[in-house]
Design a protein around this nucleic acid. Structure first.
Lengths: 110, 110
DNA sequence: AACATTAATCGTAATATTGCAATAAACAAA
DNA sequence: TTTGTTTATTGCAATATTACGATTAATGTT
């Protein structure tokens, strides 16, 4: 069926999965890296930087924006995108907590 | 077409995306959390802990194992799974580098 | 050997994601 | 207003993911 029964999991687990999922495509990783690199970026710049069609980039940007990790500012006909630093920090805290789960000192694992 | 042209992206970008993708499902997040929590865990324990069918859990375990994040040890008829701490640490370094990208101090963003 | 237990694999249905051509929308400039 | 520029949206086709019943495989138990 492929139905993700999100009620089965905790809010925290679903949140981690949602953030991770958006990083689960190299195009979105590339977009975010580019936004970090140049501070502010027009959609068209990303289209030429990354080798994907404009609607595809636009779609990826939409997902990133929907999760709040980036924001877009309309400037005339073009749109300037940048990292939403506040939300990025919040997301980072969530992900770090997951990644830094402590491994028990006793190495009694199978 | 939905074809991920991984040649378009750097190895680093593809690696980040691969790790992130495996965290992009709450069931796998839950499995990993459980493995961290109890240090060693039989497949059957995960099936009863998480509310998914045995083949489904087995499939998720396979993905985690394929990426090297967990290892499984056969013990009689059952299989004991645990975190591969060495690879987890390596993965963490990769992901931290991505998450900790520095945000330029000058807030000249759009 | 016969049976029980546990996990992996196979096959398949349902759903989600990805990519892009075509088009629309929003705005600026002539 | 017409034209050009830039981005968003729509509508698909291709592919990938998820879930699970049925089965198989491997091992232990009687």
């Amino acid at each position: 069926m492929g139905l993700a029964k999100s009620e089965m999991f905790t809010d925290a687990q679903n949140e981690i999965a949602l953030f991770a999922k958006v990083f689960g495509h190299p195009a979105r990783v590339a977009i975010l890296q580019q936004l970090f690199k140049i501070d502010a970026c027009y959609c068209g710049d990303l289209v030429s930087e990354i080798g994907l069609a404009q609607p595809t980039i636009s779609q990826h940007l939409k997902e990133l924006k929907h999760l709040g990790l980036i924001k877009g500012n309309v400037e005339g006909t073009s749109v300037c995108y940048c990292i939403n630093t506040e939300n990025w920090t919040k997301m980072k805290a969530t992900m770090l907590q997951f990644l830094n789960q402590d491994i028990s000192e006793k190495d009694n694992c199978c």
